[in-house]
Design a protein around this nucleic acid. Structure first.
Length: 708
DNA sequence: CATAGCCGCCTTTTT
DNA sequence: GGCGGCTATG
């Protein structure tokens, strides 16, 4: 049976599946059946006698891991292979070897908002202010250091200039806060695991023996820490299989280092390399666009996109008046697709930034078109969910101060700021955790008797919780929800409170699902798992709704019809991406667009708005330079977009001519000098070097340049 | 101590 | 336009 499936593979796919021993690099273009190859490879390994438990496959998201697990099981490859993300794997390793890693196995995983409050505290503790040292920037800098495996000690001893020395102080203080809280951030998970493997050869050997075959998907998006972990894990056998596509590397900002995949053959000189260039997903029409776009990237390995599908529909480019009209146009076209027999679940809309989903949602709601937004932290980011989880977090790890502060007076139980300040002082005076201090509240002189009673009640409540800490999570959560008064406070609130109440109930059902699916459910494990969950992981592909997501979230997915909106200068490439300062970032933005385009199987709709509201201001936009690269004829597309009749004033007026050297002013970019004027009648383009240093190609009819 | 209301800040992408 | 933090008031 499985042989029959294997026979359906192409020659190169088969090569990748059956090359079992030693290092293997699979360079796979979009839609080349890469995931399929990895899954079959797992099956082939098991067929050749490898016990499933000796296989470790690493995916980019938890969702991808789930899918791969299911596919492997469907193939008859028995469950038992370890399939997860790098982060999940590290959590497991760190928990198993907690004593060696020098951490407490009940550690909390700090998310972005936990990190933000910790860094703010760290900046304060270092006698600095958050204006000169913006928390987000500091976190980013620390994250970069951790991804490069630079720990506090190393950075401190090597910091030379003023900024580095200051950053070193903040870094040190931030780490000690996390330490006191028994917490790790996302980057710590990788860094600590990498150090564990580096510093303890016996642990490294044990894990190498446990995982005799390592498969890593989306290798182009691994960072240095992940690279070091991978290298250590296979150091005793070199059975590594990496798959990826340099053209789809879109996480540079998160530390992803494209050199990892480009240098694979240097790292493992005896590596076999298989290229998968056939595309089974998209029509040639779409692939032509993708190919043309990506060919503008100079730092890349040439790779073909060989279509296997029949020619299909033309790619549609829509020019809209503003973002509202653009959203309407999307829904309108979706309705047409549905009339032609498409189903909503086969349609997706991509955009560059999450904020762009709102206007779309309004349009979908008005038109009664079902949709789902896939957003970074949607569900777990809600206040009531965070409150509920904070109770569980404190229970699992009483040192988790951020969670404790969140719930100590939620719902209101008369423990206010003054009280908390007094407890904090007491805690630091006695070198104990906040929770310990609360337990000893009776010894705090300055507290009133009534306040002490309230604190004692709080401690007693947690005493009740801890009796039920072992075993399944859902019953415990249910118990806490009612006993803490959280349920009551939500029900007592307005109708909005009802929604919130239902959300917590949903969380509890999700926990019940966890209890059911997990062999040995435990509170610690549950909390650590969901900390690594994002909304993409929750994406429900089976419900018949249009999927709305960022271009980043679209990675690894495919849809019959794809809409990419807001393809404008400043949005794609994004103004804050660095694309206007350096080519590397520009190329990454181009790859991001490439990823979006190559998600489409048969229908691709690209649009931009001539005007867009930014921070409350309606601004004139410029089409993305990527559209110019694709050679789009804007006059034609404008005429084709019937939903928005063309404005006469734009087409009626004569196109202004420019000559090199002229000084001009642009609404957005300010003053600049004309470098070149390309006369194409109505579609004339003027290339301007602005005083900011940016060089732009602008459509004369849209740019509204003033000669000064 | 709780709450409401206001001000000023930022606003790319995410495991 | 949205959110966190601060202040004034009950």
């Amino acid at each position: 049976m499985r042989d029959i499936i294997f026979q359906q593979l192409t020659d190169s796919q088969r090569k990748a599946v059956f090359h079992v021993e030693g290092p293997l690099l699979v360079i796979a273009g979009p839609g080349s059946g890469k995931t399929r190859v990895i899954t079959y490879r797992i099956a082939a390994l098991i067929d050749s006698g490898v016990p499933p438990s000796n296989i470790c496959a690493i995916t980019f998201t938890n969702k991808a891991a789930d899918e791969m697990r299911q596919r492997a099981i469907a193939l008859g490859a028995s469950a038992g292979a370890h399939i997860s993300t790098f982060h999940s794997l590290c959590v497991r390793i760190l928990r198993n070897y907690a004593d060696r890693a020098g951490i407490n196995p009940n550690f909390s995983i700090y998310d972005e908002s936990d990190q933000t409050s910790s860094i703010k505290q760290a900046i304060k503790d270092s006698d600095l202010n958050t204006t000169d040292f913006p928390p987000a920037r500091m976190l980013e800098a620390i994250s970069t250091l951790k991804n490069k495996l630079v720990d506090v000690e190393f950075f401190q001893t090597n910091a030379e200039d003023f900024f580095s020395k200051t950053l070193a102080r903040i870094y040190a203080s931030y780490q000690s806060i996390l330490n006191e809280h028994n917490a790790l951030d996302f980057d710590d998970l990788l860094m600590k695991a990498a150090f564990l493997l580096r510093d303890f050869p016996d642990v490294c050997r044990q894990l190498g023996e446990r995982f005799k075959f390592l498969l890593i998907d989306e290798y182009q998006d691994t960072n240095h820490a992940q690279y070091v972990i991978a290298k250590a894990l296979v150091s005793h056998h070199n059975n590594i299989c990496a798959t990826g596509d340099p053209d789809q590397s879109i996480y540079r900002w998160r530390g992803a280092d494209i050199r990892n995949i480009l240098d694979f053959e240097n790292d493992w000189p005896d590596a076999a390399v298989v290229k998968l260039e056939e595309n089974f997903r998209s029509t040639p029409n779409i692939l032509q666009w993708a190919d043309k776009l990506i060919s503008f990237n100079r730092k890349r390995k040439e790779k073909k996109l060989i279509p296997t599908k029949q020619s299909g529909k033309d790619v549609v480019v829509n020019v809209c008046e503003d973002e509202t009209k653009e959203a309407q146009a999307v829904v309108y076209q979706i309705k047409q697709l549905v009339e032609q027999g498409s189903s909503l679940k086969d349609i997706a809309v991509f955009y560059r930034v999450n904020a762009m989903s709102r206007i779309l949602e309004e349009s979908f709601i008005r038109n009664r078109t079902p949709y789902q937004v896939i957003r970074g932290v949607e569900f777990y980011g809600r206040k009531e969910i965070r409150d509920m989880l904070a109770y569980l977090k404190v229970l699992a790890n009483p040192s988790n101060e951020i969670a404790l502060l969140r719930i100590i007076n939620t719902p209101a139980r008369g423990i206010g700021k003054t009280t908390i300040d007094k407890i904090k002082t007491f805690a630091s005076q006695n070198q104990i955790s906040l929770f310990e201090a609360i337990k000893k509240a009776e010894h705090i002189e300055s507290l009133a008797k009534t306040t002490k009673d309230k604190l004692a009640a709080f401690v007693k409540m947690f005493g009740k919780f801890s009796k039920r800490i072992a075993g399944k999570v859902a019953p415990l959560a249910e118990f806490i929800f009612t006993e803490s008064g959280l349920a009551e406070s939500l029900q007592a609130a307005s109708s909005q409170g009802q929604d919130e109440y239902e959300n917590v109930k949903e969380l509890i059902s999700a926990a019940a699902y966890y209890d059911q699916e997990t062999e040995q459910p435990s509170l610690t494990d549950y909390l650590q798992q969901i900390s690594l969950f994002s909304d993409v992981d929750g994406y429900d592909a089976s419900s018949d709704r249009v999927a709305l997501m960022t271009l980043h979230a679209a990675k690894g997915l495919e849809f019959e019809n794809v809409f990419i909106i807001g393809v404008e200068d400043g949005l794609l490439p994004h103004a804050r991406s660095g694309a206007y300062e350096n080519d590397d970032d520009l190329e990454e933005e181009r790859r991001l667009f490439f990823v979006g385009i190559t998600r489409a199987k048969s229908g691709l709709h690209i649009s931009y708005a001539k005007y867009r509201t930014l921070r409350g201001q309606m601004l004139h936009t410029i089409p993305s330079q990527f559209l110019f690269e694709l050679g789009i004829d804007f006059a034609e597309t404008a005429a084709e977009s019937q939903s928005q009749p063309a404005e006469t004033d734009e087409f009626g007026t004569a196109i202004q001519h420019f000559t090199g050297g002229q000084k001009v002013r642009h609404k957005l970019f300010g003053l600049g000098q004309v470098k070149e004027f390309i006369d194409m009648g109505e579609n004339s383009v003027v290339i301007v070097k602005f005083n900011s240093g940016q060089i732009k190609s602008l459509m004369v009819k849209y740019a509204n340049l003033k000669i000064v």
